[in-house]
């Protein structure tokens, strides 16, 4: 796998020089901090906006620190995943479309190294961002709302990471298969929504669905995860990711004729 190292160096340089290595973590840290901060200041915000009649006593139940961290996870599920999909949608399709891939494809390239190098770098940045986001959220949650055991947080993040990797792998495979980044993002979003929908409608009996990983991960905070289901879901996720590695490498090679010459 000599090509893997060479290509990974290229991916690193790309992600540093297009600033993804800075702005993606920045977004996740912001998301992580905003949730506890907004909740903490909600009473003051409501008061300042003058929405309450004079003298009215409006009891807002103070959320528990666990609830705040779950809300952070919700933010990551919506805005966070959208950011990752947008950031990496053009990873392969963009290279073909601009023609920069041509000068790689004319060499005796290992396409599995090509796909994997992109995956490893994107995964490293995405996971680091998600972790940093959770840690900053955790810091503020403790500051404003009280203690949560760090081990609970780590367990949640650890399992949630598999979900992040699944989303990322789907985006990269879509980028390898489709003609441009926009379509890849659309396909990834569509799949994301469809999976959630299918799980919501029919998933009552599918305890090992990968789509349930985020909610399983969240149950670490409250303490009672359904371990067999969780590990089952993680197992299936890993298998899907491995299958997508194969598919992504194969379709990248197959689409090599579509690079702009």
């Amino acid at each position: 796998m000599k090509h893997f190292g060479i290509l990974m160096q290229k991916e690193w340089r790309e992600n540093i020089r297009n600033y993804k290595i800075y702005w993606i973590p920045a977004i996740f840290i912001l998301l992580g901090i905003t949730e506890p901060a907004v909740n903490y200041f909600l009473p003051q915000i409501l008061e300042a906006s003058g929405g309450l009649p004079e003298g009215a006593v409006f009891e807002i139940p103070t959320p528990t620190p666990e609830q705040i961290l779950m809300a952070v996870l919700q933010q990551f599920q919506t805005i966070g995943m959208a950011v990752l999909i947008l950031a990496y949608m053009a990873t392969i399709a963009g290279e073909r479309k601009s023609g920069t891939a041509t000068l790689l494809y004319v060499r005796p390239l290992s396409f599995s190294a090509y796909f994997l190098s992109k995956w490893v770098v994107a995964a490293a940045i995405s996971l680091a961002s998600v972790w940093l986001g959770f840690f900053s959220g955790y810091y503020y949650t403790r500051l404003f709302f009280g203690e949560v055991e760090i081990i609970k947080l780590l367990q949640m993040i650890g399992f949630y990471s598999f979900w992040v990797l699944l989303i990322l792998t789907i985006v990269l495979a879509a980028s390898a298969a489709l003609p441009n980044g926009g379509l890849a993002a659309a396909a990834a979003f569509a799949l994301y929504v469809l999976l959630q929908l299918a799980d919501g409608l029919l998933g009552a009996n599918w305890s090992v669905s990968p789509v349930k990983i985020p909610q399983y991960a969240a149950t670490w905070l409250t303490g009672n995860p359904d371990l067999p289901s969780l590990w089952g879901a993680v197992g299936i996720t890993v298998v899907i990711i491995l299958v997508l590695f194969g598919f992504g490498s194969w379709i990248s090679r197959k689409n090599k004729a579509k690079t702009k010459v």
Partner: peptide
């Protein structure tokens, strides 16, 4: 083999 396309495109950040 070495190949030079008519309009070679490079990664602009390298």
């Amino acid at each position: 083999i070495g190949f030079l396309p008519q309009y070679p495109q490079f990664f602009p950040w390298l």
